[in-house]
Design a protein around this nucleic acid. Sequence first.
DNA 1: AATGAATGAGGATTCATTCAT
DNA 2: CATGAATGAATCCTCATTCAT
Lengths: 195, 195, 195, 195
Amino acid sequence: MRKKKPKYNQIIEAAVEVIAENGYHASQVSKIAKKAGVADGTIYLYFNNKEDILISVFEEKMGQFIEKIALGISKLRNAEEKLFKLIEMHFHQLSEDHNLAIVTQLELRQSNTDLRLKINQILKPYLTVIDDIIVEGTRENVFRDDLNSLLARQMIFGTLDEIVTNWVMKEQKYDLVREAPEVHAFIINGLSAKK
Amino acid sequence: MRKKKPKYNQIIEAAVEVIAENGYHASQVSKIAKKAGVADGTIYLYFNNKEDILISVFEEKMGQFIEKIALGISKLRNAEEKLFKLIEMHFHQLSEDHNLAIVTQLELRQSNTDLRLKINQILKPYLTVIDDIIVEGTRENVFRDDLNSLLARQMIFGTLDEIVTNWVMKEQKYDLVREAPEVHAFIINGLSAKK
Amino acid sequence: MRKKKPKYNQIIEAAVEVIAENGYHASQVSKIAKKAGVADGTIYLYFNNKEDILISVFEEKMGQFIEKIALGISKLRNAEEKLFKLIEMHFHQLSEDHNLAIVTQLELRQSNTDLRLKINQILKPYLTVIDDIIVEGTRENVFRDDLNSLLARQMIFGTLDEIVTNWVMKEQKYDLVREAPEVHAFIINGLSAKK
Amino acid sequence: MRKKKPKYNQIIEAAVEVIAENGYHASQVSKIAKKAGVADGTIYLYFNNKEDILISVFEEKMGQFIEKIALGISKLRNAEEKLFKLIEMHFHQLSEDHNLAIVTQLELRQSNTDLRLKINQILKPYLTVIDDIIVEGTRENVFRDDLNSLLARQMIFGTLDEIVTNWVMKEQKYDLVREAPEVHAFIINGLSAKK
DNA sequence: AATGAATGAGGATTCATTCAT
DNA sequence: CATGAATGAATCCTCATTCAT
């Protein structure tokens, strides 16, 4: 399996750094190779093309991101707690890795529509985690029973995503995790019984 | 005033169509010129460079977008009604102009960081409209008094933006405006008194 | 005759100024038109094309330049005096009109080979003036009798031209006319009897 | 060292040929690449940009030109002999390489002011060689003691340059080297004691 | 497996010239 | 005579990818 090879990870890490430092469009394959300490051609022994590097960056990093969140909420008993944990971990993980935050919130969004669709595929497991919380919350009557669950997911994800993007664009000057309770309250109230 | 000249608008309209059809990166100036029915060089009588076309597209289109919404809510009496109108009009306007929706939700986001900053400037008046509703809602006690208004704005905008983007990516197969009431309920409940 | 029309001269003068200020390659027709106070299209009522403007600039200015020198030396009795007057007037006239000096010594030389050949045609009368002095000097036995007159002319013109070019490139910081006696001595000695 | 690489020289040689054949302004990078038998992009592995090719052409060719002359005159005992050798070699070298003569005398002079300044820098060593001969000649009392040495250098260089340029413009139809003795006599006499 | 020199397609922009008014 | 808006041809350089070593 290719992911076991050390150079694979070297290249992935180099790509995150290079993109965070230089921006998406100024991140040439040769720059990534240099930062990774390999020859340009070596990149192509591990990745099919440049797009494959970027997808793999997202895949690897979001894979860990999602896995940790999935694990973190698995021990919790109800939707409300799970949602809080998800928000907190979402914010926490991106707070901890500024480069990753820049890459996922700003730089990779400059990619073309094709790549963006692939990125969306990688996000699906995360959306599924959110969907599961919504289903659980509905069952627990924390959320109202006539909830449009697809819409609810978009509202949750859109809210979190916009908040993180704003934080990144403001150069991470404030504590993102501290916002979690209010965001949690906002979503819980938003999705609970109609007045 | 340059905006009065018919060719200026011809070029703006052509740019929206070309970008929606071909995607951001495949939208050459020559393609825009051809669609607009002018010579390549004529573009540069009305715009300084390619970036200026794109900024102007956003400026013109979002200017109208925001103006209409600002006008539409101005007659309404309270924050709740205004918020509903804003959501409805936000969805309605982008529903009516699929090309514009594609361009604003997907294509223009592929631009480089410089252009993105300029686009953010253009969005500011819209964020101000949202801010005003939040202030009004807080005064009317529709929203809770300890609301973090900046966060609230991010939640509202993030929610709307994500919902529209999903709709665009699903190729506008369903009626976006029909979602307005539930989104409205979500936001109102989210921002009202804590349990 | 086109040269009588006032706009013809306006354009010629504007061209000299624009080229001296901006350099040959940055001297667009539109800039010349603006400086001349006429519309771009008006240029083409008086000149066939851009090259024609440049040739005419040289023609007009060098025409006067040569005419004055020819007149200045006509009263003089012998080749030695004539040569001195020619050098002095050559230096004097270009000293008096810095813009013209810049244009003829530096800027017009950046033109393409075709234009340069036409410029050489215009210079011919000046070369003829030099040739006449050489013939006269040979007859007077001031110059040696086995002189290669074509070569002599090239030596005279090359010397004067290089000296003026150096003066222009050093931004005309010293008095060019003061060099005349030494240059004169150099040429006279150079062309006189072999040791 | 880049200059050892064979492609570097291939490109330099191709540039001389292309410029001599097509003229300065019609010498596209792609034409040079084709003549050199390399891809367009390869040019940029050896040169920073088009201007860098042109400067390097002059640098390489004039470097050799000057080096040979400096070497050729180094063995000689006095200023008079050195000057003769310099003239002869100046004429000889350009006679031997018609393309180079066209490029240095006509085409490269069409370059913009920036490039011209850089070309002047490259010429400096040659002017220094001339200066040294002038100093030596003055010491040897071959040249008069009140000689303005800067002016003398301009006279020498201007004379040689104009003679070569005329020869190039007359399509190299006669034997340039044959002119050397007379040019030498002209300069020696010109710079020797006043009558 | 690893290298890195070589490849070559692709596009924004300028500006001399025209011609309808 | 005069205008000036419109035209459209023409080119340098970048960088993802290949392949001989």
